[in-house]
Computed example of a mutant assay.
Amino acid sequence: MPTFDYTQFPRAGLFRRLASWVYDFLLAMAVYMVAGAVGFAIFGIFYKLGLIDMSGHEHLIEVQQSSLFYSSLIYLWNLAWVAYFFVFFWVKSGQTLGMKAWRLRLQNTDGSLITRKTALMRLLPTLLGIGNFWLIIDRKNKQSLQDKVTNTEVVLLSLAANRGRL
């Protein structure tokens, strides 16, 4: 398998990043829904074990929806799994499935893969892809807000460099 100098690839523009974002958004929604189903199943198990009281509600979902504590736990659980989805792929290969489809790779500016800490730091400015719109302001450097904050870059890989990754 050939090796590539990842510092030589050009930085990706806004269109490719947004196209990749659409793919990843759909995947993230699927992860969110599966995590929600698993989270609610765990909630149901806690009820069966007697750890959760129905508090006069007829259905378990009403208990969850009427409690800020339970709702917050389930939503945080779901968001944690979505965050894990992105962090896992960014750290493992520099590419989520959407990035792979559009031949994008997230990396440090020296071409190396990012660390978990860097991936976690990218999550907030990446939120819903809003940080990518910084590319409209910074057309010359092609760095999004999350790229600037974490000293990373998203590059456009060649077909050969993208083949067999992930």
Rank of each mutant, 00 (worst) to 15 (best):
V87L: 04
D53W: 09
K148F: 04
L79M: 14
T126R: 08
G44L: 12
Y32S: 06
L49P: 02
L106V: 15
L156F: 11
S67D: 05
G129H: 02
G164E: 06
G98C: 05
L159H: 10
I45S: 08
L157H: 01
L157W: 04
V149D: 04
G56F: 04
I114E: 01
T109Y: 00
F85Q: 08
R103A: 02
T96Y: 10
L106I: 15
L128A: 14
G98L: 02
L113A: 05
A83R: 03
L127T: 11
M33I: 14
M29H: 09
G39Y: 12
W134N: 00
W81G: 02
E153N: 12
I74M: 11
F133R: 02
V155R: 00
S158H: 08
N151S: 12
S144I: 04
M121T: 13
W90V: 11
F86D: 01
Y32M: 10
L68V: 11
Q95F: 11
S144A: 15
V63Q: 06
D138A: 13
K142D: 10
F88Y: 15
W77R: 03
K140G: 09
G131R: 00
F69P: 00
N78H: 13
K117H: 06
T152L: 07
W77D: 09
R139H: 10
L156S: 06
G98P: 04
L51A: 15
T118H: 01
V154E: 00
L157R: 02
E62C: 10
H59K: 13
G94T: 00
R103P: 00
V91N: 06
V38E: 03
W77N: 11
L97G: 07
N162V: 08
S158G: 13
L128F: 15
N151V: 14
L97A: 07
I130T: 10
H57L: 01
N108Q: 13
W77S: 07
F43Q: 09
L73R: 05
L124Y: 00
D24T: 12
F25W: 14
K92L: 14
